[in-house]
Amino acid sequence: MTSPGPGDFKFIISVSPHVHSGQDVRSVMRDVILALVPGVLAGIWFFGFDAFRVLVLAVLGCVAFEIGMNRLLGRASTIRDLSAALTGVLLAMNLPSGSPWWLIIVGSGVAIILGKAIYGGLGYNPFNPALVARVFLLISFPVQMTHWVVPAGITTGLDGITGATPLGAAKEAAGLGKSLSETILPDTLQLLLGNVGGSFGEVSALALLLGGAFLLYRGIIRWQIPVGFIGSVVVITGIAHLLQPDRYLGPVVHVLAGGLILGAFFMATDMVTSPVTRTGMLVFGIGCGVLTSVIRLWGGYPEGVSFAILLMNALTPLIDRYTRPRVFGQVSRKLFEEAPSS
């Protein structure tokens, strides 16, 4: 050092770029949790304290299992990135409001341990952790997982009565060979607001759409997945309904009832388990929509959103591989370049 001064400073030496947007995993997870607030509030409004209990147990459960797994595997704490808390919120929203406490804890453990930690933690999990837990519970404890409370408290003064979800009722009718016209279904407004039976966080389409719009506005999710997902459900169930209106519900019911809005905006868009390319996202979204429609219309379950997303999760690496954008300056793909030239 020849000149005075410079030696007094300690410099950080690293490669470019030297500045950053400031966004990180934590800020994105926080935004997603914020976006879920309207849906959570709607659930609590319709299902009361029970729903709140599910939420608290699921979040605490997931965070506790995350801490436990970090300790067990000797990993640095990942609580601050809020991903475990978000998994808890999403899991809660996918459970019936009357879920027993042990069901919620088992679900939290499955989500964090089998859904995420065993793969290496956030970023390495191929499947959406909350959905892994939901499907695990649905298969293992079908009775508890389909014990729906129909929110009746507001109008009748009762805490709630149990009954089927709109999609479940339709599926049951179809199974009995009855026409849909004999089945009592909630009207569109009730479906939109969420005054229907179902998992605590999936019922209010309006509240969920509000949160979804926020995520789109913030650029955290891209339109390709929700539009591809919901769009293809509308098209397929619409065609089926046109052909056999007595047997198949219309597209409006299919969109507003069940877990489609929650799934399309908050579950399928999970960054880790969905494609990174825009084209891939569209393919992924359409795939989710097609599978959901097939399961709902012709499968054994009334609801197919969870299965559809998990199946598409498995295809994500393949979709990414075949939807790579054409590189700038790549005048034509190799396929065409190999054409014989004279």
Binding site: I12, P17, H18, V28, L122, Y124, S274, P275, V276, P325
Partner: peptide, 28 residues
């Protein structure tokens, strides 16, 4: 003001794919 690069796992958010002006897939 300086970005400290940590090398945390990629969470596949796709931001880099949108940002790449050469249309590469930096995440992968």
């Amino acid at each position: 003001e300086i970005s400290q690069f940590q090398g945390a796992p990629c969470i596949r958010c796709g931001n880099c794919v949108d940002a790449c002006p050469m249309f590469l897939v930096p995440s992968i």
